[in-house]
Design a protein around this nucleic acid. Structure first.
Length: 478
RNA sequence: CGGGGUAUAGCGCAGAUGGUAGCGCGCUGCGUUCGGGACGCAGAGGCCUUGAGUUCAAAUCUCAAUACUCCGACCA
């Protein structure tokens, strides 16, 4: 009977307690497990498979735009880190330090990389000679460590996996163009492949990366209206290259400093996928990165011919899609719930009745709509439905963002919105740090970005009343 | 790092007033089932987070530590 069915692995309803829902999904969809190492989580096979798909897609994009992969040491001697003042100030508080080598105390302690700008600069100072060698466009896939105080799967762990791109260029214009190009790469990847709409813009000075001249960001809005910075791209000018004495002989044979960029996307993006698309049944994965795009569930698998037919379908579909045939002993109902929890975009059910009729049932994860599909057209219907599902995820997320985006021109209006709703608040801003801090104090929101696409909402800053020409998007962030 | 909460089997929990452990799920085996989280029978599984106290006796009381978790601050 339904009422005494043990709802194994049931998750917290999304609208009851969003953070608990999120944690439930991370654990019950078997993406991560907590580690006995404080502050660290383990990426389990299913979670890692998502990250692998992300890395493959991004890596191909980076290579297509002329970037090369490298591997740097994971340790940074303190002396290197100290060379760029703003950078140290930003990162030193969250560095993990190595002070012993075996039984010997080190002459100079080393930190586990929190990011690798300093290592790249040090390397470039050795290998760069001439403008002919520029640009150098490097990327590395690695993990980094930041001594965070609290742990949330994907969103905040001491060690996390990412890629960090680092480039140097002959001119500032080229470096700025690189920064923009990479931000656009992230934005396009999010929108086209993760089906997450993003807002592109520039970070305020308060929010920008330690040591950067300018930081650009893509901001995504989660189901609950909070923002998540999903990718970032920095322009450094020649600050680091001066600090690290990176020089080259220019076209006019004078010694010059190159202009630098860096950009990164991390496993945090998996948190964005979960919190943007998931629902009460669990995860919903964008087809482009789902470990399995299709799961085949045989019904009455013990009956003659069913498993064979299911395997036949699997083999045929596997030529084009990532497919899983679940031939375990669990009941069909259990499998339905399990794979919904894990967010597989499409489920194909095949049983004796279907085989008789030469059809199967396709069930969409996002709408749970059932489509009785003749086997001859299965391939094209799957392609069509995967595509439609991705588009639907994007549209749903976009609609949520639109519904949760508010405009305000006065402080009391801002406070009223921030107390009653969660989402983006668009306002004008005079550019003063004091007003940005006041927004945090009075309304509890931080600036997410100064969007590239600007609107003129009013003439004055709602905080101080002085003339304001920039529009800023504010919000609560993960 | 500040404020709350939690710590007993793999997971979720029960274990008033102290007497050294139990339930559900899961797991293993066999059988019956199979179109939305199946069922029967038989099993395996616990230094009650750690360390000090109080006591004849501590999962239970006291103190401390550690970890996890939620809410802030900080970050990708």
């Amino acid at each position: 009977m339904a009422e005494n069915k043990k709802m194994v692995e049931a998750i917290t309803p999304i609208n009851e307690d969003f953070t608990q829902w999120y944690t439930d999904i991370c654990l019950k969809a078997e993406l991560v497990d907590y580690s006995t190492v404080k502050g660290c989580t383990i990426l389990r096979p299913y979670g890692y498979a998502i990250w692998e798909n992300i890395t493959h897609l991004l890596d191909a994009r980076f290579k297509a735009t002329g970037h090369e992969n490298v591997a740097m040491p994971m340790l940074i001697p303190e002396g290197l880190l100290l060379k760029e003042a703003d950078h140290v100030e930003g990162f030193a508080p969250e560095c993990a330090w190595i002070t012993m080598g075996g039984a010997e105390k080190l002459e100079e302690r080393m930190c586990v990389r929190p990011t690798s700008e300093t290592l790249f600069c040090d390397h470039w100072s050795h290998v760069l000679h001439s403008y002919r060698e520029l640009p150098m466009k490097y990327n590395q896939w690695c993990s980094v460590m930041r001594w965070e105080k609290t742990t949330r799967p994907f969103l905040r762990t001491r060690e996390f996996w990412w890629q960090e791109g680092h480039t140097i260029h002959e001119t500032a214009d080229e470096a700025i163009a690189e920064t923009e190009q990479q931000l656009n790469t992230y934005a396009d990847f999010c929108e086209q492949q993760l089906n997450i709409p993003v807002l592109k813009g520039q970070k305020t000075d308060k929010e920008k990366f330690a040591g950067a001249v300018a930081t650009y960001t893509i901001e995504a809005m989660m189901h609950d209206g909070k923002a998540l910075q999903s990718g970032t791209s920095h322009y450094f000018g020649d600050g680091f290259s001066k600090a690290f004495d990176v020089t080259f002989a220019g076209r006019d044979n004078t010694l010059q400093h190159p202009f630098q960029t860096s950009w990164g996307m991390s496993t945090r993006i998996i948190g964005a996928i979960i919190m943007t698309h998931g629902d009460d049944e669990g995860l919903i994965l964008p087809p482009a990165i789902a470990p399995y795009q299709v799961v085949i569930v045989p019904v009455a698998a013990h009956k003659a011919g069913v498993l064979e037919k299911a395997e036949e379908l699997r083999a045929a579909l596997a030529e084009k899609y990532r497919v899983k045939l679940d031939d375990s002993d669990n009941s069909p109902g259990w499998k339905f719930s399990q794979w919904e929890m894990k967010g597989v975009p499409l489920r194909v059910e095949i049983g004796p009745k279907d085989i008789e009729k030469g059809q199967c049932v396709i069930v969409r994860r996002d709408t749970r709509e059932k489509l009785f599909t003749p086997l001859e057209t299965l391939d094209e219907v799957i392609a069509q439905q995967l595509d439609a599902l991705g588009k639907n995820l994007y549209e749903r997320a976009k609609q949520n963002r639109e519904e949760r985006t508010y405009t305000a021109t006065a402080m009391d209006e801002i406070i009223d919105i921030s107390e009653s709703k969660t989402g983006y608040i668009k306002t004008m801003w005079c550019g003063d740090l004091a007003c940005e801090e006041m927004m945090k104090e009075k309304a509890g929101v931080s600036s997410r970005c100064i969007p590239f696409v600007q609107e003129h909402l009013s003439d004055t800053c709602p905080c101080c009343g002085k003339p304001a020409s920039k529009m800023v998007v504010w919000g609560k962030a993960y």
